[in-house]
């Protein structure tokens, strides 16, 4: 279950012929119209596209929050579309870490307790949980902020707590949905550099949705979505490398 870099040549994420439609009959709306996408361990993929292009939908599907209407999604070879709600929750718990645009921290809850949350669901003992959470906070440069609640932290700090919460479980994939959308450019760069560092040092696969080319520039691969289809898929040298 750990995300240590290993010789894992089979794709980590494998989407084939994925469609997603909402509603039914004449009111139905097709958000994805047959997406094929393969992501290998250790990649840093930026997903771009205009609003309504389907980038959020694909993110939800990759994040096991949603299932395709047709087509298949294999995660580490597991057919996710065949899993029930609880099995997908388990997959998120052990394999995925989420970072959101709006930070999504629990309010009136200390940074430490926020970071501990996923470890609680993993059932870790108290002392170990605390230590791991403190380490994660230190990794994102928030030593000494453990007892502060989100309202006492700046936006950049809140997003770093959210990153700590996402990586504290050492997931295989870090899913970032517009992680810099609510930050100024200096904070944005900080956050991007941090994500890039986790990608390169820990080998965590990163899938990031963004509409800012500056942020997409940090990725090693940029996938453009247009009208529910992959419009382009380019590899590039990331900014930090």
């Amino acid at each position: 279950m750990s995300a240590q870099p290993t010789a894992f040549d089979a794709p980590l994420i494998e989407l084939s012929g994925v469609t997603k439609s909402y509603g039914s009959g004449s009111a139905s709306m097709q958000a994805l119209r047959g997406v094929d996408l393969t992501i290998h361990q250790g990649e840093f993929v930026a997903i771009m596209g205009a609003s309504g292009s389907g980038k959020s939908t694909i993110m939800n599907i990759i994040g096991c929050l949603d299932t395709p209407t047709t087509g298949s999604y294999r995660f580490k070879g597991i057919a996710v579309e065949q899993l029930d709600r609880n099995q997908r929750a388990q997959l998120r718990r052990y394999e995925l870490g989420f970072v959101f645009q709006g930070f999504n921290l629990l309010s009136r809850t200390s940074a430490l307790e926020n970071v501990e949350l996923p470890l609680i669901y993993r059932g870790l003992p108290n002392a170990e949980r605390r230590q791991l959470a403190l380490n994660a906070l230190a990794t994102v440069g928030l030593n000494g902020w453990a007892s502060h609640t989100p309202s006492e932290l700046s936006g950049g700090q809140q997003q770093r707590v959210a990153i700590a919460r996402a990586i504290v479980t050492q997931p295989a994939v870090l899913l970032a949905d517009e992680p810099t959308g609510n930050l100024d450019s200096a904070r944005s760069v900080e956050v991007m550099e941090m994500i890039t560092r986790f990608n390169q040092e820990s080998g965590i696969t990163v899938v990031m949705v963004t509409h800012e080319p500056d942020m997409a520039a940090f990725a090693s691969r940029v996938v453009h979505f247009h009208d529910g289809l992959v419009a382009s898929d380019k590899r590039q040298a990331g900014v930090a490398s």
Partner: peptide, 8 residues
């Protein structure tokens, strides 16, 4: 948030 983090 709890569900995204993996709460069943």
């Amino acid at each position: 948030i709890r569900m995204a983090i993996g709460a069943m």
